[in-house]
């Protein structure tokens, strides 16, 4: 999934997968922070794939 998304031009920072057990609250906080940072690094870029209002000619 991720590979094709990136192939299409979605930035890798937009999609994350992780594996956290229910006891790993520290890992959860850790990953949550990293994901947010990654997303913030794209702040100024246009959102991709978002459906905006249809362009009317």
């Amino acid at each position: 999934m991720k590979n094709l998304m990136e192939h299409m031009g979605i930035e890798p920072e937009r999609l994350h997968f992780s594996w956290i057990s229910s006891a790993e609250s520290t890992k959860f906080v850790d990953v949550a922070t990293k994901v947010t940072e990654a997303a913030k690094s794209l702040e100024n870029k246009e959102k991709k794939f978002a459906k905006t209002k249809p362009k009317v000619a």
Binding site: H16, S18, I20, V31, A38, A39, K47, F49, A50
Partner: peptide, 20 residues
Amino acid sequence: SPKFILAGLRRGADAVWVSG
């Protein structure tokens, strides 16, 4: 499903995080 991720992005999410 990949559909969920796309649906999220389509509705304007900046990023998607899937965690098991």
